[in-house]
Nucleic acid binder design. Structure first.
Lengths: 228, 228
DNA sequence: CGGCTCCTTGAGGTTAATCAATCCTGGTGG
DNA sequence: CCACCAGGATTGATTAACCTCAAGGAGCCG
């Protein structure tokens, strides 16, 4: 539930993209940020829409995805708090993907016109943006590589990455529904279910007793699986 | 074997990241690029090292990886010619992964300090780079989307894209060997061969009499194929 | 000619999508 | 409190795609 409304400056400071900036620059950005609050399952933009803005997600979860011809959807990216998305809107006339909220969200909208002017005025901001885009680039590179691997390897990589970013030792909590995770891995729920089952039978992972999380029992074999 | 030494400008122009830039901007970048030639199995940097530079790989192959606790290594990314890596060094204090050459390599090193200074001095360059990265981002987005399609659709898209960028009307010249093309499409030569054959049998494409190029006979059906 | 590389062709096996049925599980109303 | 329902998750059977392995061509150069 989203009830409180933190100050814009706090949200900006908490954003990966803006945190290195000084107070005056933050203020300049705050001046052009347009706060929004959305309910879950709200479409932000569709692939092909004229790209008039990019977004900072302050709170909630957003899914960036492609709608395929047959109605399947392929998730490009899960955005969570403090991350920006659709930055490419700054230079493209058209959104290359669609985006919708998965949960109630609090976010900020940045009009491309206004931002461009600001970038030329404040080069430090442009440099920060470059860094953020480099990060995204690396992420997508990894994604492309992953899609060439068999499903078990993709799942293994996902679990290992999750384990690194979660503090718990060799124990992960899946942050999404199985359906969403399947889309994220470029597969279907049935295959994901079977693959998880195979990992469990193989003694590589195990459900915790409360069925809330997954224990990575044999990290070594999981790593080998992730290689191919 | 690395024998020749092409001009820096050619290497920069051939780089995915820099190719959209203008000549003067390329020159500014060339001025701060530090060329290097390395033998195979040379360590470029280790995870945790202070991030002092990022790199453009002109020729050869580089592996970006994480060293795991037990001495094993998990490859994050294989870098090949024309790609930059460790761009995140621009705004992170520390390398998040290690990197070493897999083959003899020719590459360019960019000191983060120097680059940052240059970008701050020339905001237009920073904005141009942002544009180039946005372009790359869109490209990778498309790549991810494509990999979820069946091989014939990927091939169809490739042919259509090629036709658009080549002047000839509904006739394309494959710019690479079949082997390379197969890799580019995320498949193997055998499947590519069979798929091309099927398109020919279906009357969708045809080899020119000199076997040098492909004629796109039925562009309409090719487009439908590309959808899924 | 032999040896080489690249491409093609063929047979067989594996992976993963599809279609359909069943099983949970949490929520709802009787 | 319980029967029932709806959605997600699982399981099973089938099918299609595509990779692998192996065996030919076809051009090319010594």
């Amino acid at each position: 539930m989203i009830t409180d409304r933190p100050a814009i400056m706090d949200d900006l400071r908490a954003a990966e993209l803006f945190s290195p900036l000084g107070a005056d620059q933050l203020a300049a950005i705050a001046a052009i940020a347009r706060p929004m609050v959305l309910t879950a399952e709200t479409t932000l933009f569709l692939r092909g829409d004229p790209a008039t803005a990019f977004y900072l997600l302050a709170e909630g979860r957003v899914k960036v995805f492609k709608l395929l011809g047959d109605g399947r959807s392929a998730t490009i990216r899960h955005v969570s708090g403090g991350q920006t998305f659709a930055e490419a809107a700054l230079f493209h006339g058209i959104y290359p993907s669609s985006a919708e909220t998965m949960t109630p969200c609090r976010l900020y909208r940045f009009e491309t016109q206004v931002v461009r002017a600001l970038l030329l005025q404040q080069p430090e901001l442009a440099v920060s943006l470059l860094g953020a885009m480099a990060e995204l680039l690396a992420l997508l590179n990894r994604r492309v590589e992953e899609l060439l691997l068999p499903v078990p390897a993709r799942l293994a990589r996902y679990l290992l990455a999750l384990d690194e970013e979660q503090a718990s030792p060799a124990t992960v909590r899946l942050p999404t529904s199985k359906r969403e995770l399947a889309a994220r891995l470029g597969t279907v729920p049935e295959t994901l279910s079977r693959t998880l089952d195979r990992l469990k039978r193989g003694g590589i992972i195990r459900s915790t007793s409360d069925h809330e999380r997954l224990e990575l029992v044999d990290v070594e074999r999981l790593r080998r699986l992730a290689q191919d």
